[in-house]
Amino acid sequence: QEELVKAFKALLKEEKFSSQGEIVAALQEQGFDNINQSKVSRMLTKFGAVRTRNAKMEMVYCLPAELGV
């Protein structure tokens, strides 16, 4: 569980995922086979993730800066 949270936060820091499906796929690539869209959705809510525009003006998920991840 701890490893999943770390990987999840690291992915969001990249600010390149525009959908929950993309986050699920990226986590599965890292070996988290039991991850699915509903789990990702709950984690996004739990950590207060928001959708914002990145440098390329794409809408992407990211974590609020005050979490200091």
Rank of each mutant, 00 (worst) to 15 (best):
Q1M: 12
Q1T: 12
Q1E: 15
Q1W: 14
Q1D: 14
Q1V: 11
Q1G: 11
Q1P: 10
Q1F: 12
Q1A: 11
E2F: 12
E2W: 13
E2R: 10
E2N: 11
E2P: 11
E2I: 11
E2C: 15
E2T: 11
E3Y: 10
E3K: 13
E3Q: 12
E3D: 12
L4P: 01
L4M: 07
L4G: 01
L4W: 05
V5R: 08
V5P: 04
V5W: 10
V5H: 13
K6M: 12
K6S: 11
K6T: 11
K6D: 08
K6L: 12
K6C: 15
A7T: 06
A7Q: 06
A7V: 09
F8E: 00
F8H: 00
F8R: 00
F8G: 00
F8W: 01
F8S: 00
K9E: 07
K9C: 12
K9P: 00
K9S: 05
K9Y: 14
K9H: 11
K9F: 15
A10V: 07
A10G: 09
A10N: 10
A10F: 08
A10T: 08
L11H: 02
L11N: 01
L11V: 05
L11P: 00
L12S: 00
L12W: 03
L12Q: 00
L12N: 00
L12K: 00
L12M: 06
L12I: 06
K13L: 13
K13I: 10
K13C: 05
K13W: 10
K13Q: 11
E14S: 13
E14A: 13
E14Q: 14
E15C: 15
E15V: 06
E15N: 06
E15K: 08
E15F: 07
K16E: 05
K16V: 08
K16C: 15
K16M: 07
K16S: 08
K16Q: 07
K16W: 04
F17R: 03
F17C: 15
F17G: 03
S18C: 04
S18A: 11
S18Q: 14
S19K: 08
S19R: 10
S19G: 06
S19C: 04
S19E: 08
S19D: 08
Q20G: 07
Q20K: 15
Q20I: 15
G21V: 12
G21F: 13
G21T: 12
G21M: 15
G21H: 12
E22M: 10
E22R: 06
E22V: 04
I23K: 00
I23H: 00
I23R: 00
I23W: 01
V24E: 05
V24W: 04
V24F: 05
V24K: 05
A25H: 10
A25D: 08
A25V: 10
A25P: 00
A25Q: 13
A25S: 11
A26W: 08
L27P: 00
L27E: 00
L27G: 00
L27Q: 00
L27S: 00
Q28R: 15
Q28F: 09
Q28T: 09
E29A: 14
E29H: 10
Q30I: 10
Q30W: 08
Q30T: 04
Q30L: 14
Q30E: 06
G31F: 03
G31K: 03
G31S: 03
G31Q: 03
G31H: 04
G31E: 02
F32N: 01
F32I: 03
F32R: 01
D33V: 14
D33F: 13
D33L: 14
D33E: 13
D33Q: 13
D33P: 14
N34Y: 12
N34I: 05
N34S: 12
N34L: 08
N34W: 14
N34V: 05
N34M: 09
N34T: 11
I35W: 02
I35L: 07
I35G: 01
I35K: 00
N36V: 05
N36F: 04
N36A: 05
Q37W: 08
Q37K: 15
Q37Y: 09
S38R: 15
S38C: 05
S38W: 13
K39T: 14
K39E: 14
K39Q: 14
K39V: 15
V40C: 02
V40L: 05
V40D: 00
V40T: 02
V40Y: 01
V40K: 00
V40H: 00
S41W: 09
S41V: 10
R42F: 13
R42M: 14
R42K: 12
M43S: 00
M43H: 01
M43R: 00
M43C: 02
L44P: 00
L44G: 00
L44W: 01
L44Q: 01
L44D: 01
L44N: 01
L44R: 01
L44H: 00
T45C: 06
T45A: 11
K46R: 13
K46N: 10
K46E: 15
K46T: 10
K46Q: 15
K46I: 13
K46G: 08
F47Y: 12
F47G: 02
F47L: 13
F47Q: 04
F47R: 01
G48L: 04
G48A: 05
G48M: 05
G48R: 08
G48Y: 03
A49L: 02
A49E: 02
A49K: 02
A49P: 02
A49F: 04
A49D: 02
A49V: 07
V50P: 02
V50E: 06
V50N: 05
V50G: 07
R51V: 09
R51G: 03
T52M: 15
T52F: 07
T52R: 15
T52C: 15
T52K: 15
T52V: 15
R53W: 08
R53A: 10
R53M: 15
R53G: 04
R53C: 07
R53I: 13
N54T: 05
N54Y: 03
N54Q: 02
N54M: 02
N54L: 03
N54E: 02
N54F: 02
A55L: 07
A55S: 13
A55P: 06
A55V: 08
A55D: 12
A55K: 10
A55I: 08
K56W: 07
K56V: 07
K56N: 13
M57G: 15
M57K: 09
M57E: 09
M57F: 10
M57R: 08
M57Y: 10
M57P: 03
M57S: 09
M57V: 03
E58D: 07
E58C: 02
E58V: 10
E58S: 04
E58R: 07
E58L: 07
M59K: 05
M59A: 05
M59I: 10
M59V: 09
V60D: 01
V60W: 03
Y61W: 15
Y61G: 01
Y61A: 01
Y61S: 01
Y61L: 04
Y61P: 02
Y61V: 02
C62M: 13
L63T: 02
L63C: 11
L63F: 06
L63S: 03
L63G: 02
L63Q: 03
L63Y: 04
P64F: 04
P64V: 05
P64H: 04
P64W: 03
A65T: 11
A65P: 15
A65Y: 11
A65V: 11
A65W: 10
E66W: 09
E66Y: 08
E66D: 13
E66L: 06
E66Q: 09
L67G: 13
L67Q: 14
L67S: 14
L67I: 14
L67K: 13
G68L: 08
G68D: 15
V69A: 13
V69W: 03
V69C: 09
V69Y: 04
V69F: 05
